[in-house]
Design a protein around this nucleic acid. Structure first.
Length: 587
DNA sequence: CCCCGCAGCGTACATTAATA
DNA sequence: TATTAATGTACGCTGCGGGG
C-alpha cells in the first residue's frame, strides 16, 4: 500500500489497534518503522493524531543497547553521537501523521468522535490536570492564586472574568499543614476583607493552646470561583478559606475591590461578582453600585475603566447609576433552582409575560414522548429536592425547549426592552387604581406627582436626601492597608514574646505542664521514643524536621512533640453536622 | 433509616427611640 | 443635630420529632 497514493484514511483504518495496527504499519511503511511503534508501545491509529515525528524518534537519540539494530536500519549516528533518521523514513512518517490528523480533524468537524478518540482526549486532559496539580503547589488556605488565574485566563484566551463567592457550613477541625508549617482550621482575621494566609504559625505549644482556647474555629468554608467569559471555559478556584461567618458588608466590598485590583495587575478585568442572598453581600453590592449610598472615603473609579450602562431615556423609574465598575447577579444556580421550585410548585403560579407556565407541559412531554427525546425523569418534576441543579439543567436543555416550542400552547417568551416598559406601565396603572380606591388621586394630582416620570423624580429626590441614604465612612486608601497590617503583626509578636522560652517553664502554664508530665510519666519506661495512645513524644529529633515539632518541657527535660500530635492532644470535642447534612457536605 | 417541617439560635442590618 | 441603644427583620443553620 502506498500512503502517497492514498487521499484519505478510511474509518476502519482509523479504528485499527494492536496486531491489526502493526500489520497495517508493516504494509504501508516498513518492518523497521513498525518495530519503532512497537518499541514506543503505540497501539492505536488514533494515538497518532496527537504525536509528532520528533516524539516518535526521540528514543533513538538515546543510548539504548537494545535499539542499536533498529537505529542502524532507520538512520545514522554521527560522530557527535547525534541520530539522524533516513529521509525516506521521515517522509513516510510525516505522510502517515498528516493523514491521521486530517482524518481526525474532519471527523471532529462532523462531531463524529469515535470512542477511541474521546478516550485519548480524556487521557490527555487527565495528564494535563495531573501535571498542573503536581507542578503548582496545592491550594493553600486563604491564598488568592492570581498568577494561576492569569495562566488560566490565558488558556481561555479571554481577559474578562466573572467571580463568584459563597460560604457553606462545615465541620470544624484543627490540623497541622506541614507544607506551610501552619495550623489550619482557625478562622483567619480579615485585613481589608481578605483573610491572612499562614496567620496561625507558631513554634510555641502554649501559643497553640491559647488559640485553641480563644481563637474561633472555622465553621464555614468560603470559596471564590472565577470563570472566564468564554462560555466553553471551565471554572477556576481562586481561593478557599475557613471563616467564622463574622464579617461585615464593608469587608465583602473591600475583598471584591482587592480581587479587582490584583486581577487588574495581572491584566484581567473582573466584570462582576455573583453570590447568594446573604444580606451582607447584598449590602456590599448596594455600596459598590452606589444605590442611594455614599462612600465619601473611597474612590471606586481610580482606574478609569468603569462600565457605562446605557439606560433608556424613558426609564425615569430606573434608579441605578450609569457608571458602574461591576455587574452583580445572584449566582445563577440559585436562580435556576428557585425558578424551578416556583415552576413546580403546586400553590404558586409562575407567570412569564402573558403566559402562565406550569409543569403540565413538561408532564405532558414525559407522558407522550420517549425519554430519548427529552432525557427527563419523573423526579425532575417533583419539587422534593429543592436544590437539584441537575434537574434544572435537564428541564432547560435545548432538547426540551425545542419540544416545548413545537407545542402551540407553550410558547417561548422573549423579554425585550419594550416588554419591560410595558410591565412597569401596567404595574403603575394598577397602582393608580388602588390610589383611586382610597381617594388619593386628587391629592397626588395637586402635588404634581400623578404621572410616572414625575413620581419617579419625586421618589428619587426623597430617597437621595432622606435618612434612607446610607453613608459609609470606611476608608479605602492604600495607607490603610499598612496600618492594618502592622496592627496584626504587633498582635502576633505580642503573643510570641509573651510566650518566649523563659516563660514557658514559668508557673503561668503549670497546669499544662503537669498534664504533659502525666502523659510522659505514664508512658515513660526506658525508651527514648514513647507511644501513648498514638501520641508520640521524642527526646531528640532530626534538625531538618525541627519546625514540624514543638519544644516542650517535661520534668525539666526538653522533649519534642509533633505539631499534628499537639492538635490531636488539644482537640477535646468532635464537632459534627447532623448526619444528613454531613452527606451534603461530603458531596 | 431517611426526609421534611418546625422552632430556636446566631449573625448582620435597618429602623426607631433615647440621649448628649 | 449627631450619636448610641434598643428593637425588629431576614436568613441560614441546628436539633428534634413525626411520617413514610
Amino acid at each position: 500500500m502506498d500512503l502517497f497514493q492514498l487521499n484519505e484514511l478510511t474509518d476502519d483504518m482509523m479504528n485499527l489497534c494492536n496486531n491489526d495496527f502493526y500489520n497495517f504499519l508493516k504494509n504501508s511503511l516498513n518492518k523497521d518503522l513498525c518495530e519503532l511503534f512497537r518499541v514506543q508501545a503505540i497501539r492505536h491509529m488514533t494515538s497518532l493524531s496527537s504525536i509528532t515525528i520528533d516524539q516518535i524518534i526521540e528514543i533513538l537519540t538515546l543510548d539504548i543497547g537494545d535499539l542499536n539494530n533498529l537505529k542502524k536500519s532507520l538512520g545514522f549516528v554521527t560522530s557527535d553521537e547525534k541520530f539522524h533518521v533516513r529521509l525516506d523514513h521521515r517522509n513516510l512518517l510525516e505522510r502517515l501523521l498528516l493523514l491521521v490528523k486530517s482524518k481526525t480533524n474532519s471527523s471532529m468537524k462532523n462531531s463524529d468522535l469515535s470512542n477511541q478518540y474521546m478516550k485519548e482526549q480524556i487521557h490527555e486532559k487527565c495528564l494535563e490536570m495531573w501535571r498542573k496539580t503536581s507542578n503548582s503547589s496545592n491550594v493553600i488556605e486563604c491564598e488568592l492564586r492570581f498568577s494561576l488565574l492569569k495562566e488560566y485566563s490565558r488558556s481561555t484566551s479571554c481577559n474578562y472574568i466573572f467571580v463568584a463567592e459563597d460560604a457553606t457550613r462545615s465541620i470544624s477541625c484543627i490540623d497541622y499543614d506541614v507544607q506551610s508549617n501552619s495550623f489550619i482550621g482557625f478562622s483567619a482575621p480579615l485585613v481589608n476583607g481578605v483573610p491572612q494566609s499562614n496567620f496561625f504559625r507558631t513554634e510555641k505549644f502554649n501559643v497553640l493552646k491559647e488559640w485553641f482556647d480563644e481563637a474561633d474555629t472555622s465553621k464555614f468554608i468560603n470559596l471564590h470561583m472565577a470563570k472566564s467569559l468564554k462560555s466553553s471555559a471551565p471554572s477556576f478556584i481562586l481561593c478557599a478559606y475557613g471563616s467564622n461567618n463574622k464579617f461585615e458588608a464593608i469587608d465583602v466590598l473591600r475583598r471584591w475591590l482587592y480581587i479587582y485590583h490584583e486581577s487588574l495587575i495581572q491584566g484581567l478585568r473582573v466584570i462582576g461578582f455573583s453570590t447568594d442572598g446573604d444580606s451582607r453581600y447584598l449590602r456590599a453590592m448596594r455600596l459598590c453600585s452606589r444605590f442611594f449610598v455614599e462612600l465619601p472615603n473611597s474612590n471606586l473609579f481610580k482606574y478609569n475603566d468603569q462600565l457605562d450602562i446605557k439606560i433608556p431615556d424613558k426609564w425615569s423609574w430606573f434608579f441605578m447609576k450609569q457608571q458602574q465598575i461591576f455587574l452583580f447577579m445572584q449566582d445563577p444556580i440559585h436562580i435556576a433552582t428557585k425558578i424551578r421550585n416556583r415552576l413546580l410548585s403546586k400553590l404558586a403560579n409562575l407567570k412569564m409575560g402573558d403566559f402562565s407556565t406550569g409543569m403540565k407541559y413538561l408532564a405532558e412531554l414525559i407522558e407522550t414522548k420517549s425519554k430519548i427525546e427529552h432525557n427527563l425523569i419523573k423526579s425532575d418534576l417533583s419539587p422534593k429536592d429543592r436544590q437539584s441543579f441537575a434537574s434544572c439543567l435537564r428541564i432547560s436543555s435545548e432538547l426540551v425547549l425545542d419540544l416545548l416550542n413545537r407545542n402551540e400552547n407553550a410558547k417561548e417568551l422573549n423579554l425585550t426592552e419594550n416588554d419591560i416598559e410595558k410591565i412597569i406601565n401596567r404595574a403603575f396603572e394598577s397602582a393608580k387604581q388602588y390610589v383611586a380606591m382610597v381617594n388619593m388621586t386628587q391629592l397626588l394630582k395637586n402635588k404634581d406627582i400623578y404621572s410616572l416620570p414625575e413620581l419617579s423624580q419625586f421618589i428619587k429626590t426623597i430617597l437621595s436626601k432622606a435618612s434612607s441614604k446610607m453613608v459609609d465612612y470606611k476608608e479605602d486608601d492604600d495607607s490603610n492597608y499598612d496600618s492594618d497590617d502592622d496592627e496584626f503583626k504587633d498582635n502576633e509578636n505580642g503573643l510570641a514574646t509573651f510566650d518566649d522560652e523563659d516563660q514557658m517553664l514559668s508557673s503561668t502554664f503549670d497546669e499544662d505542664e503537669e498534664r504533659e508530665g502525666n502523659i510522659t510519666a505514664n508512658g515513660l519506661s526506658n525508651e527514648s521514643q514513647q507511644n501513648f495512645k498514638g501520641c508520640r513524644i521524642f527526646n531528640k529529633i532530626n534538625q531538618q524536621q525541627i519546625n514540624k515539632y514543638f519544644r516542650i518541657s517535661v520534668d525539666s527535660s526538653v522533649k519534642y512533640i509533633h505539631k499534628h500530635s499537639a492538635c490531636w492532644l488539644l482537640s477535646t470535642s468532635k464537632n459534627r453536622l447532623s448526619s444528613d447534612r454531613l452527606e451534603c457536605v461530603k458531596e
